[in-house]
């Protein structure tokens, strides 16, 4: 048997723009990953707890409300507190360039903006995220 990549797609915060998250969930399934989607309106606490219970390798956060500077680092902080900072966290949505540095600093490994082709995202994952041993 071999390890399968397990991914959590999560929507922190209150915005309901889930088009990207859902498209990504389907694309990930088609790429052969096992995908769990949280649905809209989740708190960082909920997301971190689920990431741990589901033993995922990657968390994809999607936020289009502008609250990413608060919400994304909260998720990485909570994972770290639980000793789960080996879970890779990436982000997407409307994230201005000027916010990227601070988010990377906070442990967001990659940020994908509007218009990113699906292949670019799965390509990055295949290169950078491996099922953890």
């Amino acid at each position: 048997m071999s390890r399968k990549l397990r991914v959590l797609i999560a929507k922190p915060g209150l915005d309901g723009h889930d088009r990207g998250a859902k498209v990504l969930a389907r694309a990930f399934r088609d790429e052969g990953y096992e995908v769990i989607y949280t649905g809209c309106h989740q708190t960082p606490e909920m997301i971190a707890a689920v990431a741990i219970q589901e033993d995922v390798d990657l968390v994809g956060l999607s936020c289009l409300s502008g609250a990413h500077n608060y919400l994304f680092p909260q998720v990485t902080r909570l994972l770290k507190e639980e000793g789960a900072d080996d879970i890779v966290v990436m982000g997407g949505g409307i994230i201005p360039e000027q916010d990227h540095a601070a988010l990377h600093e906070a442990g967001i490994a990659a940020i994908f903006g509007p218009g990113t082709p699906l292949d670019a995202i799965t390509g990055w994952i295949n290169d950078n995220v491996k099922p953890r041993d």
Binding site: K4, R29, D30, V35, M46, A49, V50
Partner: peptide
């Protein structure tokens, strides 16, 4: 699991999110 790609959308969890914390 998808018989074609081996991937899967594990959709049950979403209904139970309110217990996540």
């Amino acid at each position: 699991s998808s018989p074609f790609t081996g991937g899967a959308i594990l959709g049950d969890r979403i209904r139970m999110m309110r217990h996540a914390e």
